[in-house]
Write a protein that binds this DNA or RNA. Structure first.
Lengths: 213, 213
DNA sequence: GAAAAAACTCGACCCCGGTCAATTTTTAGG
DNA sequence: CCTAAAAATTGACCGGGGTCGAGTTTTTTC
């Protein structure tokens, strides 16, 4: 039977991930050794490397599941009728809450997502694409409501806002932003800047006023 | 004499950095061991750790010198009379060229700068502040020329544009942008978006038109 | 000037991520 | 069933980052 082997492989993979989830959460990433992982999964150390190339890959696989869940959760809860800036804020703050739940996890994940190491960065791009899928309908609706320019490529809009999100999180990691509230305020500020533009407009006074309060 | 010891410490530190510069450049960061570094610097392995906490700290120290030089170079060459977007492009592309000269170096540096590990992220913030110092006069002039809103905190403007720079570089590391030209185009696009704003304006037609060409 | 105190240097050592040749398990053909 | 090839598993092993306490050098103290 062709299935016996494959089935067992799935089980082993799952066992590794389960062990990883438990040990990483309990003792942290660095403090967990591959040997421990193997022992907890009931296999030999070497075997792990026929399922994952590196330790960090195990971590990433473990994160991606959670991330996908969080995305679904967030989109489900988002209210399509709110103004764009409010929706974006809710979404990105939701993700920040997830990332900041464990400082170390978030850092490893973000480092790998933003500046990936393994050649094609394919893994990171997949997750990114999930992002784009999630945001696109929100942007489309905002365009219909006249809250977003229609002459822009949505992928560039996504990139723009994601960049601001990353910068805000970076501010938190750098110790410039201390509390969740600091983060929310900075993000709000940057999003408003992005929507209104940095250059003065003819309706400049109105924009300046809106930004103040 | 109080100086004998201190003087020697300076020398030793310099010797380590010199050895690091040579070996990292020649064989890469990962391929250079602390033992090699110690040998090249003519000291014992353990001694290195009384000058730097970790291997990556050596690398960072080595990078910071170079970065400072690059900043000075870039500001010296920048032409204060050019339009803001052009100046920004020149500046950030100059930095990208530096970062991309050695893919591995850039990645390590950026990872540490954007998502720092050691507690206060103080090192990263210093470099950041150099950035702000460098950009502030450019923004001030742009404001006088009416190219930049005057009702914004300059630090938020810096953060905004730096975020877009980081996102562009990330696109390069993720394999979405392949050549230097791809990077330049993406950056230009994002900067224009930031200046004009993502929301429609009353003078919307004009903005849309300008973005096209 | 001597000796105590402080600062510094060193390399053997520990731990861990990752490798690989040897061994066990599975599959397929007769 | 049996067997030989293929696939999977394993743990001893390797190289490197980082630690530590013993030994050395400099500074301070009297």
């Amino acid at each position: 039977m062709a299935g016996v082997r494959d089935q067992k492989k799935k089980q082993t993979r799952a066992a590794i991930l389960k062990a990883a989830m438990k040990l990483f959460s309990r003792q942290g990433y660095e403090q967990t050794s591959i040997d421990q992982l193997a022992q907890a999964a009931g296999i030999g150390k070497g075997t792990i490397y026929s399922y994952f190339h590196t330790k960090s890959e195990i971590f990433l696989a473990f994160c991606e599941e959670q991330l996908e869940f969080v995305y679904q959760e967030l989109t489900a809860r988002s209210n399509p009728k709110m103004p764009l800036r409010k929706q974006l804020l809710t979404l990105f703050m939701g993700e920040f809450r997830f990332v900041s739940r464990n400082r170390e996890f978030g850092r490893i994940l973000l480092r790998e997502m933003v500046f990936p190491k393994d050649f094609p960065g394919a893994r990171a791009r997949e997750v990114d694409d999930k992002y784009i899928e999630m945001l696109t309908p929100i942007f489309k609706r905002a365009q219909q409501r006249g809250e977003l320019r229609t002459d822009l490529e949505l992928i560039m809009v996504t990139g723009h806002l994601y960049a601001l999100y990353i910068m805000t999180v970076s501010g938190w990691y750098m110790g410039r932003l201390h509390t969740e509230e600091d983060v929310a305020m900075a993000m709000e500020f940057l999003f408003d800047q992005a929507l209104q533009g940095l250059a003065p407009t003819t309706a400049k006074e109105k924009a300046a006023h809106a930004a103040k309060k």
